[in-house]
């Protein structure tokens, strides 16, 4: 059984993403994938899809969808709210973090607070993989839906909804500094630059995108070897510092190589937090070693497993009450 949905309004900056495209970086193919893979997994769990299935990443404005055939379940993760209008009449206000089954003719109008947010689909979005992944890579125009952001009247196919709508507590993430491992070109900087990097507050610039997050703050000074390096490998999280001394933290769509000295690289466990930095936000960085990075990954896995264990069916509940209760318990668990 499958379901089909029509996109009544496409939103802005809405692309199909999964966990990314690995195995082709030697050919210059970026990994792409969800900026916040953990939140995509949550949307998938709520929709009844595999954790790494393809869903929608919503960056700037949320879409409006209608179920055209079959029943689909959508999972809402992130700062989303919306209205379901049932084909047979009836209107429900809904809010993340929950699944919602849409029957033929039902529409869902979503509103985005702060992006990115994620929409999961029962069984995952049914699209052909391109080089092993369904992620959209906009600059080369492949993956996802014809390699582009969604448009009005696009049709989306997914698996059929089964079972109950689930709801869970919202994610709450730590507020401390973004952790990074120094190197590989930390020695391209004056000795005081690493201290200045970790002691300073960095403001996110408006011209940031899926490729990189630009930061502004005090100038990080390079040593005699300068800002330019012989082009070498780059990866999401790498903190490049060009000659102006203002760091750029690379994101999912970053090139596979780069020619600027990298003072460090953000650890995997903190990439999801980096995804939610908005223009004007202020952040700080803290150096860690591999042991701390390993512990951070384990903590993130355990927190996700605890979140998953708290999911409960909405049926028969006043879901606003459930959500409020979960919000409180989520906030008191201190994660």
């Amino acid at each position: 059984m499958t379901a089909r949905l029509a996109l009544l309004r496409p939103g802005v900056g809405v692309t199909v993403q999964d966990l990314g495209r690995k195995g082709f970086r030697a050919l210059g193919v970026p990994v792409s994938g969800a900026l916040d893979a953990e939140m995509l997994a949550a949307a998938n769990v709520l929709a009844g899809a595999a954790d790494g299935a393809a869903g929608l990443e919503i960056l700037l404005a949320a879409p409006e969808l209608r179920a055209d055939a079959g029943a689909a379940r959508l999972g809402l993760a992130g700062d989303l709210s919306g209205v379901v209008r049932r084909a047979g009449g009836g209107r429900e206000e809904i809010i993340s973090w929950r699944g919602v089954a849409l029957s033929e003719g039902d529409t869902l109008t979503l509103r985005l607070g702060q992006g990115p947010a994620y929409l999961g689909f029962s069984g995952g979005l049914d699209l052909p993989p391109v080089l092993g992944a369904r992620s959209t890579f906009l600059r080369a125009g492949f993956g996802g839906l014809e390699g582009r952001a969604l448009r009005a009247d696009d049709a989306l196919a997914c698996g059929a909804a089964a079972g109950d709508d689930l709801a869970g507590p919202p994610f709450s993430r730590g507020r401390g500094p973004i952790r990074f491992i120094p190197g590989p070109q930390a020695d391209h900087f004056l000795p005081e630059a690493l201290d200045l990097f970790t002691a300073s507050a960095w403001r996110a610039c408006a011209d940031s995108d899926r490729m990189g997050l630009r930061l502004s703050g005090p100038r990080l000074r390079h040593g005699p070897s300068g800002a330019n390096i012989l082009t070498d490998g780059a990866t999401p999280g790498a903190i490049q510092v060009p000659g102006d001394g203002q760091p750029i933290v690379l994101r999912a769509d970053c090139q596979t190589s780069g020619g600027y000295a990298k003072i460090g690289c953000v650890i995997l466990a903190d990439l999801p937090r980096l995804a939610h930095v908005a223009p004007g936000d202020v952040l700080t960085f803290a150096p860690v070693g591999h042991d701390e990075a390993t512990a951070a990954r384990r903590e993130a896995r355990e927190a996700f497993a605890r979140w998953r264990a708290r999911l409960a069916p909405i049926g028969g509940w006043d879901d606003k009450r459930l959500w409020t209760e979960n919000l409180i318990s989520g906030a008191t668990s201190g994660e």
Partner: peptide
């Protein structure tokens, strides 16, 4: 998981939960 040569270096990606740095 994969590797990519550059001019004078090779980037090697790995799963840190299967092998430590």
């Amino acid at each position: 998981e994969e590797w990519a040569p550059a001019f004078a270096s090779v980037a090697v990606w790995f799963d840190p939960d299967r092998i430590s740095f």
